[in-house]
């Protein structure tokens, strides 16, 4: 069975490294460091899931998620938002932009893996 592909989007190298350590064993990983790059890589690479930070340069995660949802080729890719802010308005904005799930930083490995597996139907 081919390994599933996850697009990791974050401008913080510490988070990308953490995510690589958590997910690298089970999934093929692609990296993007801002929202714009995420939208482009999602179109080209067609990942099975996107892990998207909210606060990023160039284009934030909320805007990137909207664009991913509005593009026919990526509209059905599951998106998990990763945010330092778990406040109600941020979470509401994230879901309004079309994300399927969200996790807060610091990332809890078990919580993240459960949400990914759930969205990938594993």
């Amino acid at each position: 069975m081919p390994r599933k592909k996850i697009l990791l989007v974050d401008d913080a190298e510490t988070i990308l490294m953490m995510e690589r350590m958590i997910l690298g064993r089970d999934y093929d990983l692609i990296i993007a460091k801002d929202g714009q790059e995420a939208v482009e890589k999602a179109r080209v690479e067609r990942p099975d899931l996107i892990l998207l930070d909210i606060v990023m340069p160039v284009m934030n995660g909320i805007e990137a998620c909207r664009m991913i949802r509005s593009d026919e080729s990526t509209s059905d890719v599951p998106v998990i938002m990763v945010t330092t802010r778990g406040s109600e308005d941020i979470v509401k904005s994230a879901f309004e932009s079309g994300c399927n799930e969200y996790v807060t930083k610091p990332i809890n490995k078990i919580e993240l893996l459960n949400k990914i597996k759930n969205l990938l139907g594993e």
Binding site: M18, M21, N108, I110
Partner: peptide, 20 residues
Amino acid sequence: YSKVEQHNANLANLYVASYQ
């Protein structure tokens, strides 16, 4: 298993911090 996973995650945190 959950404790080991948490322990691994904690070690990963420390490794990432030190590495970075």
